[in-house]
C-alpha cells in the first residue's frame, strides 16, 4: 500500500502558478482554496449551471443558498469531479483546487480523498460503525490497528456521535437512526482528513437538536479546513457562513459577506427577496 505521506518531494510548484493574485480579494493571510471560473454544467442538453465564477477562501465557511434546482448540488459534484460518474453530465469552465486545475489531474481519486462530502440523505455504509469511519484511512493504506482506533474515536467524537455508539462499534452503520447516520457520515468525511468539507443540505433528515450540535462542530472545524455549506435554510447560512453565494436557476446571482447580505446590502434585489422569504 502506498502511504501518501512518504516519498514526498519538496514543493515542485503548483500546476498553475499564474493564478491572479489581486490584493483586494485577499482577506488577511488567507489564500484561495477554490477558484471557479465560468463553470457550466449540462445534462444531456439541459443547462443546469452556467457562467459560475467565484472564489472560496481557505478556512472559511462558504454558504450557498438558493431554491431547489438552482444547481447547488451540481456545483458540488463538479468540485470533486463526481461528474465523471454521472452519465450525460458535461462540465465546462475551469476549477482550481489549491491552485491546481482539477481537470488536469492525473489521479482524480487523490483529489476526492482531500474533499469530504456529506449528502442530504445520510448514507451509512453496510459496514460496522467502526469500519465506516476506518474505511477512508484504510483506502489510503493505513492498517495499523492502534492508529485506526485513534482516528475512529477522534472522528466520531468530533461528529458528536462517540458517546452514543462507543459501546456498539461493531453493529451495522446502515442500521443507525437517520440523525445518527448523518453524524456517522460526517465522521466518515472527517476521517479522510480533508482540507475541504462540502455539506449538501445536511439537516434535511436530521432533528433540530442534532442540527444544532452539527453546527457547533462545523464552527470548530473552520480553523482546520475550508467548508462549503449548501443549505436550504437561509438562517443556517446566516448562523454559520462567513460569506454566502446566492444561486438561482443555474446562475450564481451574487457572492457577499453573509452579514452584509442579510442586512440588505445586496447587488441584486432577487437576493434580498429570497433571503426575506418572498420566494423559494
Amino acid at each position: 500500500m502506498v502511504n501518501p505521506d512518504t516519498a514526498t518531494k519538496p514543493n515542485a510548484g503548483n500546476s498553475n502558478p499564474a493564478a491572479p493574485d489581486s490584493m483586494e480579494d485577499r482577506r488577511g493571510m488567507n489564500t484561495r482554496k477554490l477558484e471557479v471560473r465560468d463553470l457550466s454544467v449540462h445534462y444531456s442538453g439541459n443547462t443546469v449551471l452556467s457562467e459560475v465564477t467565484l472564489d472560496v477562501w481557505e478556512n472559511e465557511i462558504f454558504g450557498i443558498i438558493g431554491p431547489a434546482n438552482a444547481g447547488k448540488t451540481s456545483f458540488l459534484k463538479c468540485i470533486n469531479r463526481m461528474n465523471t460518474f454521472t452519465d450525460n453530465m458535461e462540465v465546462g469552465g475551469q476549477i482550481l483546487f489549491s491552485g491546481m486545475d482539477i481537470h488536469q489531474l492525473k489521479n482524480v481519486y487523490a483529489l476526492r480523498s482531500r474533499i469530504g462530502v456529506v449528502f442530504p440523505l445520510p448514507v451509512g455504509l453496510p459496514l460496522t460503525i467502526y469500519e465506516n469511519v476506518a474505511l477512508a484511512p484504510r483506502l489510503k493504506g493505513i492498517s495499523d490497528k492502534t492508529e485506526l482506533n485513534i482516528i475512529v474515536e477522534r472522528c466520531l467524537t468530533r461528529a458528536a456521535l462517540w458517546d452514543e455508539v462507543k459501546d456498539r462499534l461493531n453493529s451495522l452503520g446502515s442500521l443507525l437512526s437517520g440523525g445518527q447516520q448523518q453524524r456517522l457520515t460526517i465522521a466518515r468525511a472527517l476521517s479522510q482528513d480533508p482540507d475541504l468539507l462540502m455539506l449538501d443540505e445536511f439537516s434535511i433528515a436530521v432533528d433540530p437538536v442534532t442540527t444544532m450540535r452539527i453546527e457547533e462542530v462545523l464552527k470548530e472545524l473552520r480553523s482546520e479546513m475550508t467548508i462549503i455549506l449548501v443549505t436550504n435554510l437561509v438562517q443556517q447560512a446566516r448562523r454559520l457562513a462567513d460569506r454566502t453565494a446566492f444561486f438561482l436557476d443555474g446562475k450564481c446571482v451574487e457572492v457577499g459577506e453573509t452579514e452584509a447580505l442579510f442586512e440588505g446590502n445586496v447587488e441584486d434585489p432577487r437576493t434580498r427577496d429570497y433571503i426575506e422569504g418572498k420566494f423559494g
Partner: peptide
C-alpha cells in the same frame, strides 16, 4: 498540499 504532493498515480 500542492499538486506534486498528492496528484500522483499510486
Amino acid at each position: 498540499p500542492t499538486a506534486a504532493e498528492f496528484d500522483r498515480r499510486n
